[in-house]
């Protein structure tokens, strides 16, 4: 693309220049609209809670403090929920990506007798699903309610991710597999030693999707584990705070209600806690995704389907 732009820049008319300027201004507006809410949240989270209630904080704290973060990390429930979120993101990603890649490898083998049958059986589930209630009853009957396993097992394979990895494996040069077989390596060894290292770009994409999905999910907590506070996740705790504050007419009255519930005196307010938890919940993602950008952009276009 760059050479096209370069050749175009020789034909600089007035209209072109006005267009370019407006376009850059538009993009700057887009950047501001995208980033402002995060900066605003960060500023509120770093501001004294009772001062923040007065409003007027935009992207810089008025009375700087770490109090909100100290509170969030010292609150046993919230801190534990971060631990659960991180655990499910790590365990869930490793298990899911490994299993999905293994299945994708077997289904990429043209001579595999069950290939068609398994592929169709999996793809059918993209069209048809039992739905919320039958799914819930199944989890209940499998005794998976109030377990950590319910975060991992029902989501081991995602058909979309499987197709991304399979397309990638199918795009590898034929000779690689053949040379592995001449070496006498078994299927599993071929998968571990040859396929996995070669599929890293696709695995990176899928890992990002799975890890983000695990870190962000709250609905399975709400549905299956809401009675066990030890299995609560950060997003679910944030969701609970959000639900108590978003109907309150102003943050002042919400703060009063919160202070009442916490026993009167408090250095934090629901608004400041919510801002702090919002930052904690999005920071890991903000730090990771830019580095995987080239992978997921490729993965999206290889998969060819809109996520």
């Amino acid at each position: 693309m760059s050479n096209i732009s370069a050749s175009r820049s020789r034909y600089n008319s007035w209209g072109d220049r006005i267009f370019d300027t407006l376009n850059v201004i538009f993009m700057l507006c887009l950047v501001v609209v995208t980033l402002y809410p995060f900066l605003n949240m960060a500023a509120v989270s770093l501001n004294d809670a009772n001062d923040a209630v007065r409003g007027g904080i935009h992207i810089w704290p008025r009375m700087f403090t770490w109090e909100n973060y100290k509170f969030v990390f010292n609150e046993a429930t919230i801190f534990h929920s971060m631990f659960v979120s991180a655990s499910r993101a790590i365990v869930g990603t490793i298990v899911s990506v490994f299993c999905t890649a293994m299945l994708a490898y077997t289904l990429s083998r043209q001579e595999f007798v069950l290939r068609k049958f398994i592929t169709i059986t999996f793809i059918l589930t993209m069209y048809i699903s039992g739905g919320l209630i039958p799914g819930f009853l199944l989890i209940r009957d499998l005794n998976l309610l109030n377990t950590f396993a319910v975060y991992i097992i029902p989501g081991i394979i995602s058909v979309f991710n499987m197709i991304v990895i399979r397309s990638f494996i199918e795009g590898l040069p034929e000779g690689i597999l053949e040379s592995a077989r001449i070496d006498g390596a078994g299927e599993f060894a071929t998968f571990i030693r040859i396929i996995l290292p070669l599929t890293v770009p696709a695995l990176a994409t899928v890992s990002l999707f799975v890890a983000v999905g695990q870190w962000n999910s709250w609905f399975d907590v709400f549905l299956y584990n809401s009675s066990n506070i030890n299995l609560s996740t950060l997003q679910y705790e944030l969701m609970k705070i959000l639900q108590t504050t978003n109907t309150a007419s102003s943050s002042q009255s919400a703060a009063d209600a919160f202070a009442g519930a916490m026993g009167g005196v408090t250095a934090v307010t629901p608004t400041s806690i919510r801002a702090t938890m919002t930052i904690v919940a999005s920071l890991p993602i903000i730090l990771v995704y830019p580095f995987l950008q080239k992978y997921f952009v490729k993965g999206m276009t290889v998969g060819g389907v809109k996520g």
Partner: peptide, 14 residues
Amino acid sequence: FISWVVAASIVTTV
């Protein structure tokens, strides 16, 4: 990439 919970929190604030 951010969760709907975070997005909802942001929208509520805005």
